[in-house]
Design a protein around this nucleic acid. Structure first.
Lengths: 348, 348
DNA sequence: CTGTTAGCGCTTTCAC
DNA sequence: GTGAAAGCGCTAACAG
């Protein structure tokens, strides 16, 4: 069995190659200032031994770890996994490894994850704060010796740069579109209403509704399919049957769609539907579902790019770097007109 | 600005607390054999300084890194991200960090990723081999000084344990179900046909078809929606219009479904459809799509569990551990009967 | 209970 | 071009 018990070390390579450790070090770091002959020889020995440098030792010498941490609520959620994939790509370009951890939106878990990442001395951090207002998180992040970028949700009262979608404008856009279609009783299904993103969208909806002198109607009860069915049943049986529904998140949109389908409500004829956040089969279901699209990949990409910029600056700037004021980057959302809102898009 | 430039070290803590480094070390490792008074005091200093142990130094002392690597083709693919989430959960229970890297199914990328992970001295590796027959991969994995388990696809000619779905039986099950419905001209749309999983499914389909004395009909041309539309158009216009379609992967199923929809083909009346691998909205589209379901989470979970078992055994066993023969764990798949195959399931 | 000390594998002056 | 040697921050004997 060829399975080795321990990894070969640099000095083993040096010994076997009959050179000093310095030379081997030079070889694995590009091979400058080493004669071509020695270079080739050492490389051969490295190959034979299957030597791979020990990152821990390098890190200990004060080098970058070439890793960045990404802390997200879930990796199975398409929104976050797309962000992650985009961030990965940027990390790779910068010769770094992305370490993803998941919090399940639990603040305790979040702190734990951050500590693990800090233990590993990641060079920087991208985080989706479970709770934008969490003090423990804010304090931890503020004192940590590495750049941090927040995505999807900001960290309030901190100097942390954040990259988020323009939820407010997106929701206004959506609501206005529904209003333009002539709907008067537009209900807003929020799903869990504590998250920053949802709050922003609620505000956007309210603003647009009030500007049109209509009445905002919120339903925050939808948690799963069952509650969606229940909520919609109530809406249908109530005195003011809605003529349009605006759902604030992916899963809510799907639950609402399924419930509407279940009750044989014609969409959009009887009730129109418009959702915040696009999803894979939104264009495949019948009717296809109109949505506000968020620039998912861009969020992940920009966040990672900004992080590496900060990493780079940090390197150039004097240690007394006066951190700039918290930047907040809001990325544009877009309305995708499909059938469920009452539009008749050109493509099938 | 409170942002510190360097992390405090253990000896700084020791100094400030007026104790030896050993004591601090004991405190951060559980606090055994330390007087309650000292313990509390040191903990306070740690808190004040915001000290977080440096994992690199620990690793260098030969400890486990408490990290495991997961190498997958894509993180945005629901199948793999679900595996990842499940593996994460197991890792967390074992007090470890899961590091996910993505290969895009590129063997070169895969080797690179593995080397990075090895540099970081992860304790173990879970990998979805881009190519089950790749020699470079097999050799690298065989000589690496840590346990490895493969998921979704095996690594041939290696002693590496693999956890895969029973693709062959699943495909037979699917095909047989279509045969039982009375369909005679059952076409198999493969999508990319080089992957291990697809090959297995093709074999399963062929076996079932031949056992029923029917003719296997493969179409390997579907790459995207456009090619699916083209393939189905050809099928419809050909001399032998199929009465059922069996698609071997998620995206192919969706493309086929959309094309069928586009051509206004009644499903399942004119052509039935059955797909390998379940997906989120398969039950929401109309007609709902029957599929073979793979135990996704279980694959990720089992793989991680086995890895930690091996890690544990390795610890107990003598260094001369004679590795057991390659285990291959095949997990059962399940047929989910919905409408597209011609069934009339009870639930909406 | 507590402290001293010797490395872990690597990079990096500083000599040759 | 090349090597010797000093640590990086931590753990683990081994004393006390």
């Amino acid at each position: 069995m060829a399975k080795k018990i321990t990894h070969p070390t640099l000095s083993q390579v040096a010994q076997k190659a009959g050179v000093g450790t310095t030379t081997v070090s030079r070889v694995i770091n590009g091979g400058d200032r080493v004669s071509p002959r020695t270079l080739a020889h050492v490389r051969r020995v490295i190959e034979t031994l299957g030597y791979v440098p020990n990152q821990a030792a390098r890190t200990l010498k004060g080098q970058r770890t070439k890793t960045i941490g990404l802390v997200i609520p879930s990796i199975a959620d398409p929104f976050f996994s797309s962000c992650a994939e985009a961030a990965q790509a940027v990390a790779r370009v910068n010769d770094s490894l992305l370490i993803v951890t998941v919090t399940g939106n639990d603040p305790r878990n979040e702190i734990d994850n951050l500590n693990v990442l800090i233990r590993h001395r990641v060079d920087g951090l991208i985080i989706v704060p479970a709770d934008s207002h969490n003090h423990a998180l804010r304090d931890l992040l503020n004192r940590v010796a590495m750049p941090v970028v927040a995505i999807d949700r900001p960290v309030v009262n901190s100097s942390i740069t954040s990259v988020v979608a323009d939820n407010l404008k997106g929701a206004m856009l959506a609501t206005q579109h529904l209003i333009d279609h002539g709907y008067k009783r537009i209900v807003c299904l929020t799903g869990e209403s504590t998250l920053y993103t949802i709050r922003e969208r609620m505000t956007g909806y309210r603003k647009a509704i009030e500007a049109a002198h209509l009445t905002p109607i919120f339903d925050t009860s939808v948690k799963d399919y069952r509650s969606a069915e229940y909520a919609i049943k109530n809406l249908l049986e109530g005195p003011h049957t809605p003529d349009a529904i605006f759902t604030l998140k992916n899963s809510t949109t799907i639950y609402a769609f399924e419930a509407l389908q279940k009750f044989n409500i014609a969409v959009p004829e009887s009730i129109a539907l418009l959702g915040f956040d696009d999803f894979e089969l939104a264009s495949t279901v019948r009717p296809s579902i109109s949505v506000i699209e968020q620039p998912v990949e861009e969020i992940g990409r920009r966040a990672a790019e900004i992080l590496f910029e900060q990493l780079f600056d940090e390197h150039k700037t004097a240690p007394t770097a006066s951190s700039q004021p918290a930047r907040q980057i809001k990325l544009k959302t877009r309305l995708i007109q499909r059938h469920s809102c009452g539009c008749t898009p050109p493509i099938a």
